[in-house]
Structure formats: structure tokens, C-alpha cells
Amino acid sequence: MKYRYLLLNKPYRVLCQFQDAQGRPTLKDYVPVPGVYAAGRLDYDSEGLVLLTNDGRLQHRLTDPRYGHPRTYWVQVEGCPTPEALAELRQGVRIQDYMTRPAVVQVLPQEPDVPPRDPPIRFRRHIPTTWLRLTLREGRNRQVRRMTAAVGYPTLRLVRVAIGELHLQDLAPGCWRELNNQERQSLLRLGNVQKL
């Protein structure tokens, strides 16, 4: 079997699956490649990098929390996080019945170059927003949103920009491409899978 490894820039309000009984947009609307599946998920209201593959072993390694591969996000939050709030994110945050792993987080000095979202985020004249760069080594359901809310700064927009050494770069929303050989090797090392 020829293994395929694709990167997609998932648009806002697209399900990270190939079918939906309610008729919402899915990956099938953007990736016409049979037999590939998402290695990890992004929420319906999140955007950015999704890896798709037909390599089941790699897919399992990338989605199993035991292996803790890094995923990096640009996160627009409401307000200006205090040093204490950032320290909490860096130490791990209690969400419901579990403690998250520590995150690597920094405030971005300026708004990242992301395409406008349709519809745009809500704008509040007297409440500023801040962009963070946040890297996690776990991926629980809606984790980034729950973490920022837990420290008092709700997420307004969430864009995954990297999975390990794979980066979104200039891939436009809704577009996809095959990994090049260097990216494939990096991905296989990340998943600790010996192929090629």
C-alpha cells in the first residue's frame, strides 16, 4: 500500500470528519482523496492545520496521548492576560476532573497574519484582545478553549499552525497538499514510525 500524508488548512465551521448527518461542511468538501483520515481533530469552530493519512499506525501514534507530540496554536483571547494567568497555563490548569500538562505559551507582539474569518469574531469596543502562541503535548476535547477560560481569558479565535515540525505556512484556508520528502521524514520521526 502506498501511504499518503496530506496537510489541510481546515476552514472555520468545517467538521473534522468525512460525513455529517446534519449536512454541515466536512473534510470531504475539501479533500477528494479516498481512504485518508484525520490524525487528530480540530473543533468545528477552530481553524488550521490538519494532517490526513491512510497510515493507520502513524495515525494511532499521533493521536495517542501517551506519545505527547507538540501541537502549536495561535489563540486570540478576550482581554490582556496577566503574568499570573500565563504562569498558570505554563504550569497546567485544572479543568473539570483533570490537570492539563504544562503548556508553552507566549504573547505574540503583534496580530499574526491570518486571513479574515467569516463571520468575524465579535468586537467589543472597550475590551481589547490578545494573541497567544500556545504549544500543547496533549489534545483533549476543546482543551485550549477550556484552558484559557479557566484562567479568565475566553478564546475568540483558534488557529492550529503546527504539528511537530509541520507548519501551516502559506497554505490558504480550504487548500491541501502532499507532504514533501523532508516533511514525511520529520513526521515519521515524530510518530517514531520506521518507514522509508
Results as ranks from 00 to 15, higher is better:
Thr135Asn: 08
Ala150Lys: 02
Met147Phe: 13
Leu136Gly: 04
Val161Asn: 00
Arg140Glu: 11
Arg140Lys: 15
Glu138Leu: 03
Leu136Met: 02
Thr155Ser: 13
Gln143Thr: 14
Arg160Tyr: 06
Arg133Ala: 14
Leu132Glu: 05
Arg160Met: 06
Gln143Met: 14
Arg137Tyr: 14
Leu132Lys: 07
Val151Ile: 14
Met147Asn: 08
Tyr153Glu: 09
Leu136Arg: 01
Ile163Thr: 11
Ala162Lys: 00
Ala150Ser: 10
Arg160Ser: 03
Trp131Phe: 04
Val151Leu: 01
Leu156Pro: 00
Arg140Trp: 12
Leu134Pro: 07
Leu136Asp: 00
Gln143Asp: 14
Ala150Tyr: 04
Leu158Ser: 05
Ile163His: 05
Leu158Asp: 02
Glu138His: 06
Val151His: 02
Val151Thr: 13
Leu132Cys: 08
Ala162Gly: 04
Ala149Ser: 15
Gly152Leu: 07
Leu158Phe: 00
Arg145Thr: 10
Arg140Phe: 12
Arg133Met: 14
Arg133Cys: 15
Leu132Asn: 09
Val161Arg: 02
Thr135Phe: 03
Ile163Tyr: 06
Thr148Tyr: 12
Gln143Gly: 12
Leu132Gln: 09
Pro154Ala: 08
Glu138Gln: 14
Arg142Ser: 09
Gly139Tyr: 10
Ile163Glu: 02
Thr130Val: 01
Leu134Gln: 12
Met147His: 12
Gly152Ile: 09
Leu134Asn: 12
Trp131Asn: 06
Asn141Arg: 13
Val159Glu: 02
Ala162Cys: 00
